[in-house]
Design a protein around this nucleic acid. Structure first.
Lengths: 129, 129
DNA sequence: TTGACATCTCTACAAATGTCAAGCAAGGTC
DNA sequence: GACCTTGCTTGACATTTGTAGAGATGTCAA
């Protein structure tokens, strides 16, 4: 069965995004990559990654003296998890208000609006079938 | 200045939603209201609420032997906070993919799609001005 | 073989979060 | 006045999250 629902902390997002971009990869590479952004030491990064393995977010494989990590959940799964968390808690599962809120808050370019509209049109078409 | 960005834990969401619905209200009422859902004891609810006061999410006022709570952040603020958290972390701030994901995952009724479309149309109109 | 590096392992600790029990205070009741 | 009820206060403890140092170990070059 698919994972029930994936939730990531802020730090975990940071890590997993880096992993997705470099997969498979070792901890030192990730820490170096993130160092500018986060100033985390190797130990910190490593702890996060190992904990994420325990949680089933990453997988680790030993190669010689190196531990290679790769993601177990896809970007899409994680995105969905996050989105549903918001949908469920903040909007009680109601989609329209959520989109409403999105539109209200960010000033979208005409371009973006156009894109959204065509997304919906496409969806309608495929639904109607 | 407005709060920088509001983030709530799952428990905090549970509490604040109950508060919004009953504002102003006392802790015993909230715990009773939530008891079915959560099975939290009075102590637990009370602890959450008091911590939320410290964080500036709720305000407390003493009336006789009763403590009345009310929300400091509005539903809209909290919704926005949650949504932006997702937008920022899961979608790197890109709105279109976020909506895409929404559309892809949930099967929307024709009705909902209709509604979304008109939301966007309205937005376009007001933007064009 | 002896360093010099790169990497790993282990351990620790503080803060935040989730959970609650036990005892205390004040108001109404018989 | 003794008691029950209702709500409050305090303190506690486990778990998760954020953060990291110190020392062990493996690898390769000179």
């Amino acid at each position: 069965m698919p994972k029930p629902s994936i939730e990531l902390t802020e730090s975990e997002w940071t890590i997993i995004k880096a992993v997705w971009d470099h997969e498979p990869c070792a901890a030192p590479a990730i820490q170096e990559k993130l160092h500018k952004q986060t100033a985390w030491t190797y130990s910190t990064v490593r702890t996060f990654m190992d904990r994420m393995v325990v949680k089933g977010l990453l997988a680790a494989e030993k190669v010689r003296n190196l531990t290679l990590y790769r993601s177990v959940v896809t970007r899409e799964q994680a995105q969905r998890g996050e989105l549903f968390y918001a949908l469920k808690h903040a909007f009680n599962g109601a989609l329209t208000p959520m989109v409403q809120c999105l539109l209200d808050t960010r000033s979208l370019s005409a371009d973006e609006l156009e894109k959204l509209e065509s997304l919906i049109k496409a969806k309608k078409k495929s639904a109607r079938k």
